[in-house]
């Protein structure tokens, strides 16, 4: 496992305001290279907002965000484009292009950003499709013909097709059956081992947290309450953290974890 002490993403003093509501204030967070970082917190605590900040979809009101030591809030278009090419994103509902088949969807980044011969592009896209656990028959289907779980996997295939250094997952296992969710976790670990991938995921799936995350970032009260491995997080006395893990569903996982 390649671990280094340098943060790959470092967020400092970020403030977000949506409408009149202050979502984050004085939020600080470092994400280390080669780790799987899970972002958790109650609904409405701004997990997705934070993710959108990092993905340059939403500019925070103030603060700084650095990715690969580049300030993404004050960099030129070329640099930001370069950063965009080095990450893959899995959106909560897949966000596959509905006009393209699964294969074309997965091939899309290859076709747009590489000069690989078309035949090779197709083979690599197919490889990613099978790696994400989709049957080959699904390659020629349109997103509208797939079930929710298959959509997720197709979207994952598209997110990893360029072998990104950074992978962002927004609720990757929601809507998957337990077996697929388990397979998803395994795949994530494999990718991390093989590619030294850094993963940031927003999740509510406690078994996924226990299984794959190196560090859990707990959002609450408009900032990061704790960024610790799950075991240590569970020992925290903060009422919000206690409440989050103490529901009837939380208890059983905490015991098993």
């Amino acid at each position: 496992m390649r671990k280094s002490t340098a943060p790959i993403i470092s967020i400092a003093d970020v403030k977000n305001v949506l409408g009149k509501q202050v979502v984050h204030e004085h939020l600080n967070l470092d994400i280390m290279k080669g780790e799987i970082t899970a972002i958790v917190g109650g609904s409405g605590c701004g997990k997705t907002t934070l993710l959108r900040n990092i993905l340059m979809l939403l500019r925070p009101k103030s603060g700084s965000i650095k990715i690969f030591d580049i300030d993404i809030l004050h960099c030129d278009i070329k640099t930001s484009q370069k950063i965009r090419h080095s990450w893959g994103v899995l959106f909560q509902h897949g966000a596959l292009f509905s006009a393209l088949t699964v294969l074309e969807n997965v091939q899309f980044p290859l076709r747009t950003f590489t000069t690989l011969p078309p035949k090779v592009q197709k083979e690599i896209a197919l490889l990613k499709i099978t790696m994400s656990g989709l049957p080959l028959e699904a390659a020629f289907k349109y997103p509208s013909e797939l079930s929710g779980g298959m959509l997720k996997r197709a979207a994952l295939a598209r997110a990893i097709v360029m072998d990104p250094e950074l992978l962002f997952l927004d609720e990757p296992t929601s809507g998957l059956d337990p077996q697929s969710a388990g397979a998803f976790d395994e795949l994530l670990l494999d990718l991390k081992e093989g590619l030294g991938l850094t993963v940031v995921m927003v999740t509510h799936d406690l078994s996924s947290l226990a299984h794959v995350s190196d560090k859990v970032v707990f959002l609450g009260e408009k900032k990061v309450l704790a960024a610790l491995p799950l075991q240590e997080l569970l020992k925290q006395k903060h009422p919000l953290i206690q409440a989050y893990f103490s529901g009837s569903r939380g208890e059983s996982y905490v015991k098993s974890a």
């Binding site: 197919l126 490889l127 790696m131 080959l136 390659a139 494999d190 093989g194």
Partner: peptide, 16 residues
């Protein structure tokens, strides 16, 4: 090596 094995395992057997 791990990466190579992972890819080998995932390779589709036949062209659909």
């Amino acid at each position: 090596t791990a990466l190579f094995q992972m890819v080998e395992a995932a390779l589709p057997e036949k062209q659909p």
